[in-house]
Write a protein that binds this DNA or RNA. Structure first.
Length: 455
DNA sequence: TGAAATGTTGGGGCG
DNA sequence: ACGCCCCAACATTTC
């Protein structure tokens, strides 16, 4: 048998159902398709960087046999199948609207050629189709989704480990990763090189290191951006350099405690995001709660720019935005605070924030990003109520008491007494840091008034 | 996975 | 010794 193996969002050698099953007793052609033809939203710049290095790493595991294509999945696969006498095509089971459409069209095309298309769920612990309320409808609230839905279902599949010896089918194709245009000529991303090692081994190492210690302080520690109680696995999970099935079972093997259970539930917030996008695809660019459709956003260009650059004059916000820009990552607590600030204090549409994160985050995940922003904006399903407005000053004082995080990204504030780290306007000492772009108190008030109009 | 406003309680100062 | 006021400290409600 000659099998075509299509990689998409699970760029790993281990625990990969597509590669594992697709390579059994067969010759394979492993390919990656950058489909910018059938999708509405192209990858963000940071994601492309991550993708580039993930592919390079995967290619090494595949003894340099990975082939790269860009364009329309259907045409590319049809062409390959015919030219190489392919019998079966193995791919990832799709869960997002665009991907489902591609899958269906591909299936139709391959059926007409009398070729099997075999989908395997690589990405989610539970298929969204199988987790429903008793009345047959989808959950909208995380806790019952997780506790009564997921955890009451049969256990997720075990991780598969390594595939057997791979036999690569010889082809005449010469493809190059460079044709995917993932890396800009302008070397803006070099700052990431020293911060992130992008490979499957590194993902596993990080996970193991996390399980060796930090996880035992996860529940409390996860809220403090200066502590290292987070696994920082998100970008690795995003492109499947580690499988959630592996993560799930490694955690299950351990003696359960409150921290491990909390980490598991966080892993399942990602599941929940995919679940929501699957059952309510309109939320990709519309408010889950329709009453927000008539909400009047200010969308001030100037304020949006200040937010993006980390020049709002609110240190905790600015530190977060600088972390994002410099590292391609932002601590979860800070993500909530900067999102609340953009939406509720600046009255800027969550979709604009979502776009910026999409472009800047190495872990930018289609579902998590949208669901996360809708959550933070208060427009989402199981969302923080709109009137729950984070105070960036208090949040900074509470979760970065020592100033370690804030001052790392805003060293100019080290000039001030520690007490004033979050309120640098309360002194005349000039440290070359911007004045607040808004008055916090009155912005809060007008946000609540604006909300009253649609309530 | 809030924060601010408002309400309640109880100890201490003081006439 | 007593009542009154003040105001933390905590609890509850509201946004």
């Amino acid at each position: 048998m000659n099998n075509l193996i299509i990689f998409k969002n699970n760029l790993r050698f281990n625990d990969n159902p597509v590669l594992y099953h697709g390579s059994r007793g067969s010759n394979i052609i492993p390919i990656y398709i950058y489909d910018n033809y059938n999708v509405e939203k192209d990858l963000g710049a940071a994601s492309k960087y991550w993708l580039y290095h993930s592919l390079k790493s995967l290619n090494i595991s595949l003894d340099n046999n990975l082939q790269y294509f860009k364009g329309n999945t259907i045409d590319i696969v049809e062409n390959l199948v015919i030219k190489n006498s392919i019998n079966r095509v193995f791919c990832e089971q799709p869960f997002l609207e665009d991907d489902i459409k591609i899958y269906k069209n591909l299936k139709k095309k391959l059926q007409s050629l009398n070729i099997d298309l075999k989908p395997y769920n690589c990405s989610l612990l539970w298929d969204p189709n199988t987790v429903l309320k008793n009345d047959g409808t989808a959950y909208k609230v995380f806790t019952p989704y997780y506790k009564n839905g997921c955890l009451m279902r049969p256990n997720p599949d075990f991780p598969l480990g390594r595939p057997d010896k791979l036999n690569f089918l010889k082809t005449n194709n010469i493809t190059s990763i460079d044709n995917l245009d993932l890396i800009d000529k302008f070397n803006w991303y070099k700052k990431f090189n020293s911060l992130w090692k992008i490979s499957e081994d590194e993902a596993l190492n990080r996970f193991k290191k996390f399980l060796d210690g930090p996880v035992y302080n996860y529940k409390k520690g996860r809220d403090f951006p200066a502590s290292d109680s987070n696994s920082k696995l998100s970008p690795y999970i995003r492109f499947g350099l580690i499988s959630v099935h592996r993560i799930w079972y490694e955690l299950k093997k351990m003696k359960s405690n409150i921290d491990i259970e909390h980490y598991k539930s966080e892993i399942c917030w990602r599941e929940f995001s995919y679940y929501l996008l699957y059952h309510f695809p309109y939320i990709k660019n519309n408010n889950f709660q329709k009453k927000f459709d008539s909400f009047k956003w200010n969308n001030s260009k100037e304020n949006f720019e200040s937010w993006k650059k980390g020049e709002t004059g609110f240190p905790f916000i600015d530190a977060g935005m600088k972390e994002l820009w410099q590292t391609g990552y932002m601590h979860n607590r800070v993500r909530m605070v900067v999102a609340s600030f953009l939406v509720k204090n600046l009255l800027i549409d969550w979709r604009l924030g979502e776009k910026w994160f999409w472009d800047c985050l190495l872990d930018a995940d289609y579902a998590s990003n949208i669901a996360g922003w809708q959550w933070a904006a208060g427009t989402g399903a199981d969302a923080a109520p709109y009137f729950r407005i984070f105070n960036p000053i208090l949040q900074g004082q509470k979760f970065d008491k020592s100033g370690k995080y804030t001052l790392y990204y805003l060293p100019e504030l080290k000039k001030l007494p520690l007490k004033l780290t979050q309120t640098p306007w309360e002194t005349d000492i000039n440290c070359n840091y911007p004045k607040p772009i808004i008055d916090y108190k009155s912005s809060r008030k007008s946000a609540l008034e604006r909300y009253n109009e649609i309530r």
